[in-house]
Amino acid sequence: MTQPGTESWSEVPQGGTVLLPGSTERNLTGSWRTKLPIIDFDKCTHCMICWVMCPDSCFKTAEGTLQSVDLDHCKGCGICASECPVKCIEMVPEERD
């Protein structure tokens, strides 16, 4: 598609209807983060509490096991660390260039 915000008035979708399901994915909200979640996979029980409590759908799973955190979108809220029953997630200060 055309780059967002460059279409002429006659090209924009009629009535402002959005036809790009889930397209917010391109907004990299990870840039908001000031704290970074670090998972200790040795302690993780794959209970998926972090997965269900994450406001930003950042916990990536495969076949019922936790794989990684989507740092492109993680806003660093720390709910996962607070709620993890085995305390295997630690929030550490985000270091940026």
């Binding site: 908001w32 998926m48 809220c77």
Partner: peptide, 26 residues
């Protein structure tokens, strides 16, 4: 069971603008 639920697509994508820690998207 959460592990079963992780196999589903919840239909709500990340990259939205809700505040960090917001309960609404959860």
């Amino acid at each position: 069971k959460l592990r079963d639920l992780t196999l589903l697509d919840d239909g709500f994508e990340s990259g939205h603008g809700l505040c960090a820690g917001c309960s609404e998207s959860v």
